[in-house]
């Protein structure tokens, strides 16, 4: 279906580039924007630009920050000797929401994946090495996805950082809390048996 206006067409195209938005949703959103109040549209446009112009990468961990350093890295109350390594800034939020981790983070902004042309040099690894070299780090927790790319990245970091005398750990593979053994897939059960712990 061709849009009646090239402006509407352009907006639909831009929106459909967003994740999870197909051509139909994009068209619906574009028509919605058209029906909105002028001030509402301006507010939306302003917010979009502000998100990009006011948020930076934290100079320490690479996570999102409104200043040079993010609130987590700047928080003197947090444990300074443990770093949790994650793939994306969004993962920081996920782990923060648990309230179970009190150290600081390091965001890689991707995983090693030759198939996507991403090597270690393309990731935020150099500054992690720098943080470890500066001292005071006891443990690095790798919280990356249990995929081929996640495992390769974990292994790479473990080999890179362990020789410096730092304990490198990886989050456990296993059953979701409160789940039923019967309804878990066999790969997960096999992994959780492999990674069992002594009681």
């Amino acid at each position: 279906m061709k849009n009646p206006s090239r402006y509407l067409d352009a907006l639909t195209k831009e929106l459909s580039r967003l994740p999870g938005i197909g051509p139909k949703s994009a068209s619906r959103l574009a028509f919605h924007v058209l029906s909105m109040d002028g001030t509402e549209v301006e507010r939306l446009a302003r917010t979009l630009i502000e998100v990009k112009s006011h948020i930076f990468r934290c100079g320490v961990c690479g996570g999102i920050s409104e200043g040079d350093i993010c609130p987590i890295c700047g928080d003197e109350m947090r444990e300074r000797d443990v770093i949790c390594v994650v793939r994306d800034p969004k993962d920081v939020l996920t782990i923060e929401a648990t309230g179970g981790f009190h150290g600081r983070y390091h965001v890689l902004h991707g995983l090693i994946s030759p198939l996507d042309g991403i090597g270690p040099d393309d990731l935020n690894i150099g500054s992690l090495v720098g943080r470890c070299r500066d001292g005071g780090i006891r443990e690095i927790i790798l919280a990356l996805n249990p995929t081929v790319e996640g495992d390769a990245t974990s292994l790479y970091l473990a080999r890179l950082l362990s020789p410096g005398g730092i304990t490198v750990t990886r989050i456990a593979h296993g059953l979701p809390v409160g789940s039923d053994l019967e309804f878990s897939d066999s790969a997960t059960i096999a992994r959780s048996i492999e990674c069992r712990i002594r009681l």
């Binding site: 390769a152 790479y156 080999r159 890179l160």
Partner: peptide, 13 residues
């Protein structure tokens, strides 16, 4: 120009 320790990782996996 590549980081050969990445190849170590792939060998291991």
């Amino acid at each position: 120009n590549l980081d050969m320790s990445e190849l170590d990782v792939w060998d291991h996996m």
